[in-house]
């Protein structure tokens, strides 16, 4: 197949494989072929354009039947026109040029494309003009901010209660954690046997690992979810209290132990 294109246009076959996606449809592609080669739309060399068109659509993805069908339909039209032009005219002068309808469609499409370019710039102009309300009110704060009422003594005692992590020596060892939430549930419930409330820090006494704190807290949350407990804190950053929910139904806690956290 002899493909001769205008300068700067398509030369290699594989160009088509990639570029077919660039076209919005068969009319777009046809226009491209015509315009890049400076062809007079009113005198389209159907044979040449058909060959080029077929060459380009070889790269179509056969699985995308929808868009492939659209290109194939136009290819069929081109071939029909080509055939009609080969047939001898019956001498009737008012016979329409077989290309006329296609030309009308192409020109109409081109016009639409031109109009949509203008609309694009109108859209851009509009986007630079704003009405009232463009800058919205400041978003409302979601939570009321609590003023931090802390004395230096509080800060100092908090600082002192932080255990400094021992500097790491050697390679870190990764060990499986063995703390189960079930243990912590039992611990919490045991502590609440003879009183109605217990401090979170009290539950941590005797356990060194941060992980114990995490698991105790999770167990507390889980029990709260099950309405066995409720949690209270008098103010931010103060002691967290676990209280027994006196209205708790009997037996709800039985399953909790089975919610094993994968440790």
């Amino acid at each position: 197949m002899d493909l001769r294109f205008a300068e700067g246009a398509i030369v290699r076959d594989d160009f088509f494989l990639v570029e077919i996606d660039r076209f919005q449809g068969p009319l777009d592609l046809l226009l491209h072929l015509i315009r890049t080669q400076d062809i007079d739309v009113f005198d389209i060399p159907v044979a040449r354009i058909t060959d080029q068109f077929l060459q380009v659509i070889k790269g179509l993805d056969a699985e995308d039947l929808d868009s492939a069908g659209e290109f194939l339909e136009t290819a069929a039209t081109l071939i029909r026109i080509k055939a009609q032009m080969l047939l001898p005219h019956e001498g009737d002068d008012d016979d329409e040029d077989p290309r006329a309808q296609l030309v009308r469609r192409l020109l109409e499409y081109e016009q639409i494309r031109e109009i949509s370019q203008r609309m694009r710039s109108a859209e851009a102009d509009r986007a630079r003009r704003f009405s009232k309300g463009f800058i919205p009110a400041r978003p409302k704060r979601l939570h009321q901010e609590m003023p931090l009422e802390t004395t230096w003594a509080d800060v100092l005692s908090a600082a002192l209660s932080v255990e400094m992590p021992a500097p790491r020596q050697g390679l870190p060892r990764i060990t499986a954690r063995t703390i189960s939430m079930q243990d912590k549930v039992v611990l919490i419930l045991d502590s609440l046997q003879d009183r109605s409330g217990v401090e979170f820090s009290h539950l941590l006494k005797g356990f060194g690992d941060t992980m114990h704190g995490v698991m105790t807290f999770l167990a507390g949350l889980e029990l709260t979810r099950q309405r066995v407990l409720f949690l209270r804190q008098s103010q931010p950053f103060s002691e967290l209290w676990f209280y027994r929910n006196e209205e708790a139904e009997e037996g709800v806690t039985e399953d909790i132990g089975r919610i094993e956290v994968d440790t």
């Binding site: 919005q24 449809g25 068969p26 009319l27 929808d66 868009s67 469609r105 499409y109």
Partner: peptide, 8 residues
């Protein structure tokens, strides 16, 4: 519309 655009 589809006739003018040539696509679905």
């Amino acid at each position: 519309i589809e006739y003018i655009r040539g696509v679905n």
